[in-house]
Simulated scan of single mutants.
Amino acid sequence: MHIRSVAAASGILLGASVLLLPAASAQAADHPHRPVTVAHRGASAYAPENTLAAVDAAADRDIDWVENDVQRTKDGKLVIIHDTTLNRTTNVEEVFPDRTSWKVSEFTLKEIKRLDAGSWFSPEFAGERVPTLAQYMNRVSRNHQKLLMELKAPELYPGIERQTLNELRRQGWLDRQHVKHRLIIQSFSADSVKTTHELRPDVKTGFLGTPAVADLPKYAKFTDQINPSHTTVSSDYVAAVHALRGAHGRPLEVYTWTVNDAAKAVKVADMGVDGIITNYPDVIRDAVGHKAKPAAGRNAVPTASAAA
């Protein structure tokens, strides 16, 4: 997904969202459907995206589901970062001024560990690092959260589906409880989703995009979700997706992205979407009628919001 959380704009957007919230919540209260709220790259309006701080920011707001992006380093290690280059969300150009490329795939894990992945967002987060997949999974587990994982640009990383599944297995995330209730793997690549399904048919999968209605039956053979941008979704499209049964014999679901204000959240909820992916998960959760649940026992000190 290609929406950037910019700290300077976050406060403005959040203010507008909060102004819309009371009316939107009143509408949502009359709607029987309550979509799942997913924290996009963690709670990325409040902490630097795809960092452990963003995972914690979601937990501090009692958000169960977080979304992330998995890529691979030059030496074959899995890391959590959205862009296929390092320069937007780290200080790579300062640390490695003589390099001519900033591609994730051209840096070793040791090199990436030297980078500051927080200062670009706010000085408060200086020193945040690009986490490995193992570090990320440890934090999600500690927070008792659930994971919507995106395999980012898998065409750049042959075999990343199997490697990611192996790491999830090592982290204890491929047992029946996790697979059934706490894990979804998605991608913009239909081939990658299909490969994931073939390797682990029990794992829930999602395809990122808006396939033509006529093509949906082909996707239903290997995926459980069709996850379009909110700008492309409609009630008729959601109904067409729901009319089909996915890879596990249940109606296909729709998780839409990236919805950052309450009015839009209510609009897509009224269309019948099953999930909403957002940088502002607390705002969207409240807009569509969910009540915050007690914190899941995380002992870390709550992360202050850079946008507050």
Rank of each mutant, 00 (worst) to 15 (best):
H2T: 14
A8Y: 09
I12R: 07
S17H: 05
S17C: 12
V18E: 15
L19H: 08
P22A: 10
P22C: 07
A24L: 10
D30Y: 00
H31K: 10
H33K: 15
R34G: 11
P35T: 06
V36C: 07
A39D: 10
G42C: 07
E49A: 02
N50S: 07
T51E: 10
D60H: 13
D62A: 15
W65Q: 03
V70H: 00
V79S: 00
I80Q: 00
T84D: 11
L86M: 07
V92Y: 02
D98C: 05
W102T: 15
V104D: 05
S105L: 02
E106K: 04
E106M: 03
E111Y: 06
D116Y: 03
G118L: 01
G118K: 00
W120Q: 06
F121Y: 14
E124K: 04
F125D: 05
A126S: 11
A126M: 09
E128C: 02
Q135G: 11
N138M: 09
V140M: 02
Q145V: 07
Q145M: 14
K146S: 14
L147C: 09
L148N: 13
L151V: 05
A153R: 02
L156K: 08
Y157H: 01
P158A: 00
G159L: 06
G159Y: 08
R162Q: 14
R169S: 12
R170Y: 03
Q171R: 01
G172D: 08
G172T: 11
L174M: 12
R176G: 13
Q177P: 10
V179Y: 02
V179F: 04
H181D: 15
L183G: 09
I184W: 00
I184A: 00
F188L: 12
S192P: 15
K194A: 08
T196S: 04
E198Y: 03
L199T: 09
R200Q: 14
P201A: 01
V203M: 07
V203R: 00
F207W: 14
V213C: 01
A220S: 12
D224I: 02
D224P: 11
S229T: 09
S229E: 10
T231S: 13
T232P: 04
S234T: 15
S235W: 01
D236K: 01
A239Q: 12
V241R: 03
H242F: 12
H242T: 13
A243Q: 07
A243P: 07
G249Y: 07
R250I: 03
P251S: 11
V254G: 04
Y255Q: 03
T258M: 07
V259H: 04
K264Y: 10
A265L: 09
K267F: 06
V268D: 09
A269M: 14
D270N: 15
M271S: 05
G272D: 10
V273Y: 05
D274N: 12
D274L: 03
G275M: 01
T278S: 15
Y280G: 00
A287P: 14
G289A: 06
A292G: 13
A292L: 08
T303H: 05
A304P: 15
A306T: 10
A308Y: 13
A308F: 11
